[in-house]
Nucleic acid binder design. Structure first.
Length: 399
DNA sequence: AGGTATTCACATGAAACTATTCTCTGAGTTAGG
DNA sequence: TAACTCAGAGAATAGTTTCATGTGAATACCTGT
């Protein structure tokens, strides 16, 4: 088929979607279902900001995909609208602390905040105190209240420790005109447990927990989104129910369930199907999982990939592999490729990270007299393993 | 037999080092007046 | 004299090494029966 006719046909075909944007994570719905209580609490806590009083610092817990981020953004939107209408100097900032190269270190976080205030700062070269000073002066320019939402704050704490929070809570003491209210959003329910007690008490003056959705709630939310995103009669009966049931038992993550639905639609469209059926959903589920693995693996550094490659070489042949065995294979690979060999210490960390990424399953076991080690196995489907191995070979220039 | 002490093979933690990227500063150089 | 160039000092960061310490349970080694 000629490309020109392909595009012509493409245009003639009716899309399954009426508004695909509804299914993207960036979409902000008018109404957030099953979160009335939490929204009300947040609104209550933050409302004093509209009177230029400093609201209590707020801490929000809940697993991924339970609506934390979207709720905070929702509240922010209305707060700012109201503030604008009534001429209140209210500034709402939202930062995701997990974003690589954006806000995943102390320096970068403050730099990002300055950027939100409209001040560009260099990516490196400046002392961190200097950034704090710039930040203080930027905030203190006028009498205002600043609400600062830090998403995935637990990731940041794990990476660089909790001193940064001490600095953040101290900001108010430095400011003369402005006031700042902190909103921490965490995926981990136990985040604050290993936090400096002083930081903990000032950071979480108020706490809100977002429970996971159950299957029926997920189903309802999915239905709402699907109605907005797909043309009528496109989704076959049972598809939404299945998607919801799966999401509920696996993780309770609505965002992911919505992603699956979108990809199912895309797959159906590519197959020139006029409806979305069960098997599209299954394919979408698999595609999402394998895409995640591939992306995670390919954006790691070279040595990291080499270790993963070593695992892929032997793990499928045996059911359990130990750290030492992987280290040996990795070493021979290094010699073949003429790369310098990392220490076992480092390998240990890499294995732990691969486990975190969900690419491998590593369990620390004790073999008694024969030591303690990680028992490593692959939890990926065979097809994924083969593709991943090929991808890594290409990335590492192995033959 | 039953109890405890060892011992293995790593895990885990902390600090420090290396290489790279970036800014800022100030001395030296250049071009124009 | 103002504008430009360029080296050197100082920062932040990612990835790593070095040194030090921790650890769960199968086995070795006792003890008293």
């Amino acid at each position: 088929m000629k490309i020109s006719t392909f595009f012509e046909n493409f245009l003639k075909k009716r899309s399954l979607f009426s508004n695909k944007a509804v299914l993207f994570p960036s979409y902000a719905p008018e109404e957030i279902k099953y979160r009335e209580e939490q929204l009300e609490q947040i609104a209550n806590i933050l409302a004093p900001a509209l009177r230029l009083e400093k609201p209590s610092n707020l801490f929000i817990y809940g697993k991924t995909g339970t609506g934390k981020t979207i709720s905070v953004k929702h509240i922010f939107r209305f707060l700012q609208e109201t503030a604008a209408k009534n001429n209140v100097n209210l500034l709402c900032m939202y930062v995701n602390c997990k974003l690589k190269r954006v806000a995943d270190t102390e320096y970068r976080l403050i730099a990002q905040l300055l950027r939100e205030c409209g001040k560009e700062v260099p990516v490196t070269g400046l002392p961190t105190d200097e950034l704090y000073n710039l930040f203080y002066t930027a905030l203190d320019e006028k009498r205002q209240v600043v609400l600062l939402a830090l998403d995935e704050i637990d990731q940041l704490a794990k990476k660089i420790g909790d001193e940064i929070f001490y600095n953040l809570t101290r900001i108010n003491a430095e400011l003369k005109q402005a006031q700042i209210g902190l909103i921490g959003i965490s995926n981990s329910l136990f985040f604050s447990d290993n936090l400096d007690p002083r930081v903990k008490s000032s950071l979480s003056e108020e706490e809100i927990i977002f429970p996971s959705y159950n299957a029926l709630q997920i189903q309802d939310i999915l239905r709402g989104r699907a109605a907005g995103a797909f043309r009528e009669q496109v989704i076959q009966p049972g598809v939404l129910e299945k998607g919801a049931a799966y999401a509920a038992q696996e993780h309770g993550d609505v965002r992911r369930a919505i992603d699956v639905l979108r990809i199912a639609g895309e797959i159906a469209e590519r197959e020139a199907s006029s409806i979305v059926e069960m098997h599209h959903l299954d394919k979408a589920e698999k595609k999402l999982e394998s895409d995640r693995v591939f992306a995670a693996a390919l954006q790691q550094p070279q040595q990291f990939q080499l270790v993963l490659y070593a695992i892929l070489l032997i793990a499928p042949k045996k059911k359990n592999v130990f750290t030492g065995e992987i280290y040996e294979i990795y070493q021979t690979l290094c010699h073949k490729k003429n790369l310098n060999v990392l220490t076992q210490r480092r390998l240990s960390d890499i294995l732990a990270e691969l486990d975190m990424l969900g690419i491998i399953t590593a369990k620390i076991i004790s073999k008694g007299r024969y030591g303690r080690t990680r028992e490593i196995s692959l939890s990926l489907a065979d097809t994924i393993i083969i593709t991943l191995r090929e991808l890594l070979e290409k990335a590492l220039h192995l033959e």
